[in-house]
């Protein structure tokens, strides 16, 4: 009699890990698509995003207007392509501001500890207590809605959370043996920060940059939708939403077309940050 094969556990074997996961490929392709839209999109479409043609309002897709025209007869495709530039600029600017505040503050508090840490952490807690969209709206309330305020508003609404993250990472890095070793070998604080702490932060900052870029694109759009972001007629993904919102009951397709690039761009950022995190985690655990 043959030996009976007992399969006591029915879970399927996981598929062998592919070198590059499918989701990373999707994310990278979408990211590339967005990048192409920003760089060569306006040129490729070849339409003026500000040319009004009242006689040709709400035209469907086709002909010279790939995605049709909006409520003023402007070319939707080129408004999205030009808008992509503005939105990308805003997102990058906002992340730069948040990073410029978070890294020095996080490193300072996390590395030094003591009363500096205590005071700054309390202030961060305070700002953390206000939902970030509200912080952004508050800033816009102060200076009025514009491209510059949107950058500032988003940058200022991300720093509390980012500072917390950097601080706890620095606290973790500070207690590593290589930092102790550097201190024992007589390296100055500044040198330790430069060689051990800052280099140790690189993975976290890389991941957070992609995460925050995604947030910033979403929030620029949300502010635009509320009429508090980039103001029409200036093209941006957010202002495009503000324009389309007025006609949402009669021409909801305009709002949908305006939303699709946002979804794709943010999805790309989420996929990239997720696979980046996986990869860096894998590296850390060996």
């Amino acid at each position: 009699m043959k030996t009976q094969v007992a399969v006591l556990v029915t879970e399927p074997r996981p598929a062998a890990r592919r070198r590059v996961p499918l989701l990373t490929t999707v994310g990278a392709s979408l990211g590339l698509l967005v990048l192409l839209t920003i760089v060569i999109g306006p040129w490729l479409i070849g339409q003026d995003p500000y040319a009004i043609d009242i006689g040709n309002r709400f035209a469907g897709p086709g002909g010279a207007h790939w995605l049709g025209t909006d409520e003023l007869g402007r070319d939707v495709a080129s408004r999205i392509a030009y808008g992509a530039r503005a939105t990308a600029l805003i997102a990058v600017g906002a992340v730069a501001i948040a990073t410029a505040i978070a890294i020095p503050l996080g490193v300072l508090t996390g590395f030094l500890g003591g009363w500096v840490d205590l005071v700054v952490t309390r202030v961060v807690d305070l700002f953390f207590a206000i939902p970030s969209l509200l912080v952004a709206i508050g800033v816009i309330g102060l200076f009025g809605a514009s491209v510059t305020t949107t950058v500032l508003a988003l940058g200022l609404s991300y720093w509390p959370f980012y500072t917390r993250l950097i601080r706890s990472a620095v606290v973790g890095l500070r207690s590593r043996p290589n930092v102790d070793a550097a201190r024992v070998l007589g390296a100055s604080r500044l040198r330790v920060i430069r060689t051990e702490i800052l280099t140790g932060l690189v993975p976290l900052v890389l991941v957070q940059t992609t995460v925050l870029l995604g947030f910033a694109i979403l929030d620029e759009a949300a502010l635009g939708f509320l009429g508090l972001g980039v103001q029409p007629p200036q093209a941006s993904w957010g202002s495009r939403l503000a324009e389309s919102r007025e006609f949402i009951l009669v021409h909801p397709e305009l709002a949908l077309v305006a939303g699709v690039p946002i979804v794709l761009a943010v999805f790309a950022m989420n996929l990239l940050s997720d696979s980046l995190r996986d990869r860096l985690d894998a590296k850390r655990t060996g």
Partner: peptide
Amino acid sequence: LGLVPRPGRVVAGSVRLRDIELGA
């Protein structure tokens, strides 16, 4: 116990408790 965690798997053999074949 039939509790081998993923990705482990019983590939051969028989476990019999009294007259019960656990693999079945």
